[in-house]
């Protein structure tokens, strides 16, 4: 139990995907202009991370390890994640149109998101069991959502601030991200 909590907190605060591992930076800057978009993107990423972690956890623990072919993990994970996102998209489209409209653009975007591949590879690297993989996926997704929400809230406020013209938009967002990263370094001593 203690071990699971360590994994979870470690990925939410200390080894945060965006600020410490620099994964998923594209949606971090692309989708963080509006709070509502950030929340739905974060929820979608967390969902896909969870499903991908379960599937790849099963494949890793029951197929790759017994046959001693762990070096194949990247290519197999890409295949599995792409297929999974495809299936999730079909299921959502057929069963809940409203949800599909809300998530519409983000689901295909996630297929190519390195954060999703990142979490599965981290699971494989640390030889996590299935339960540990699920917890780490939840932690990673929550950390990603947290960063996206914080960033979008700051950027919404920042729209009203009197930013110099050359700094408007992305440049000031990069500076904000670096300051956030510095602030989150403070969590390093937590565990």
């Amino acid at each position: 139990m203690n071990n699971l909590l360590t994994i979870f907190l470690g990925l939410v605060l200390i080894n945060n995907f965006i600020l410490a591992k620099f994964l998923g930076l594209c949606p971090f800057f692309g989708v963080s202009k509006k709070l509502s978009n950030a929340v739905s993107m974060g929820a979608a990423v967390t969902l896909v991370m969870l499903i991908a972690s379960i599937a790849t956890g099963i494949i890793y623990n029951y197929i790759l390890v017994p046959y001693n072919v762990q070096f194949m993990n990247i290519i197999i994970y890409i295949l599995v994640i792409a297929a999974l996102v495809q299936i999730v998209e079909i299921v959502i489209k057929r069963t809940n149109i409203m949800l599909y409209n809300a998530l519409g653009i983000y689901l295909p975007l996630i297929t190519t998101n390195c954060a999703v591949l990142g979490i599965t590879l981290i699971n494989a690297q640390n030889n996590y069991s299935l339960l540990q993989s699920i917890v780490s996926a939840l932690g990673g997704g929550l950390g990603f959502t947290l960063m996206l929400v914080i960033m979008s809230a700051i950027r919404e406020k920042n729209e009203l601030a009197d930013t110099p013209k050359s700094m408007k938009g992305l440049p000031i967002a990069f500076i904000i991200a670096s300051l956030l990263s510095l602030a989150f370094m403070g969590f390093n001593g937590l565990l």
Binding site: I59, I63, L64, Y67, V69, M72, I75, I76, L79, V80, A82, A83, L84, Q86, I87, I90, V91, R94, T95
Partner: peptide, 20 residues
């Protein structure tokens, strides 16, 4: 293994497409 996983994913997509 790679071929099998590829085929299984393809079949899964086809099945979800048909069943729903």
């Amino acid at each position: 293994i790679l071929t099998a996983i590829g085929i299984i994913s393809g079949v899964l997509i086809w099945v979800t497409n048909r069943v729903l």
